[in-house]
Nucleic acid binder design. Sequence first.
DNA 1: AGAAATTCTTAACAAGTCTTTAACTAAGTG
DNA 2: CACTTAGTTAAAGACTTGTTAAGAATTTCT
Lengths: 220, 220
Amino acid sequence: MTDILIVEDDKELAELLADFLRDEGYTVLSTGNGERAIQFFERYGARLLVLDINLPDANGFAVCSKLRENADTPILIVSSRTGKEDKLNGFGLGADDYIEKPYDIDILIAKIKGIFKRRYRRDTLSADGVMLNLVDKTAVIDGKPVELPAKEFDLLALLIENQGKALKKEYLFGTVWGSDSDSEMQTLHVHINRLRQKLGDDPKNAKRLFTVWGVGYKFV
Amino acid sequence: MTDILIVEDDKELAELLADFLRDEGYTVLSTGNGERAIQFFERYGARLLVLDINLPDANGFAVCSKLRENADTPILIVSSRTGKEDKLNGFGLGADDYIEKPYDIDILIAKIKGIFKRRYRRDTLSADGVMLNLVDKTAVIDGKPVELPAKEFDLLALLIENQGKALKKEYLFGTVWGSDSDSEMQTLHVHINRLRQKLGDDPKNAKRLFTVWGVGYKFV
DNA sequence: AGAAATTCTTAACAAGTCTTTAACTAAGTG
DNA sequence: CACTTAGTTAAAGACTTGTTAAGAATTTCT
């Protein structure tokens, strides 16, 4: 499914916005035609719409209303019509926001990112066969669900979050345990050891959780 | 739980907005103090926040950030600081909107109504054989009507509302009971225990109400 | 208002899980 | 080869969660 569908008359503006959004990693499609937008949406769907009100072939409000019949996809109305009535109309039809033209593209992108984050939350970290769901605190390793105790989960999450980067033992311990007493480095070793067992990883011949001698550990 | 919590320095403005919102049928509380807002929220919860940035005792951004730690309650930032940096900061912290002062109260209310409609339009919660009617507070479990006392009902409703998400014990207790004293965690355990009996769930082999060790509970 | 029933809280204990300690072994470094 | 750093294992013990029961508190009913 496409992430974002831009329905915008002004081709230049549409492409500019599309480029910015693609830079953020979204898949984007755009059309300047209301009828086609509805057709496209009904056939392929989209996760969010940026909808201009002044379209050549149709009124944006009608498009908004039509889309809302079946889906509660977030809709951001973008318009040069800045009257209060128009705004109230937009919100009444279920638009998530009504943005006046001209708009600041950074702010529009921040809003879109926020909506995606709240709505399609992907609070999950994954790397090389390991997948951590930070929301329900479950882990899947090589396709199998694995029980990870809190400290082990946090430790692995921290390593995967910074994957490829060697993390100092002091940093790991400080972040996960909230302290940095030297004597307690044993504890870290023990936890690393248990993680490796669950990852099926061998320190001499590591596949994922590497020892960085004199520094700490890294996950690749 | 209160519908809307207004965190606003300007008492007159806060009361005006509160009155309008009450006319729409919402329950509203307001405070001009950031610290108290956090306390209140953690204790009693709220379904939506209207948050001013310029507070006498704290920075609104900090309040926003703090609130976002545990809950994804919608937050509307309202501010006379109209700089782009401030806006981006606000969205970055997870605000749902950033509204410039002075604002049109009708539009603000339209936005709030939209959020409530999209977010809390349900008057019934259901999941995996469990159905809660939030209006008349009745429950049906696996096709059979079950009597649930108030606290048990609220607790289950909160869990199902966030189904799939591991909720911290403190959050559960704070939201349902309105306090977070540590000693009272027993109470939560007892209620969970009773819920499980009614759900026919066994903690060692849970089907629906899971223990998330070191965190709390989750409903799947 | 008083009695009865229900619900909530507290406490005490049991059971379970995770964390840490410690003692030992192995491996890298100069 | 001494020295430091890392890995392994097992067991103690700290902490978290589960269970039960009894007494408060609240609500409902008469």
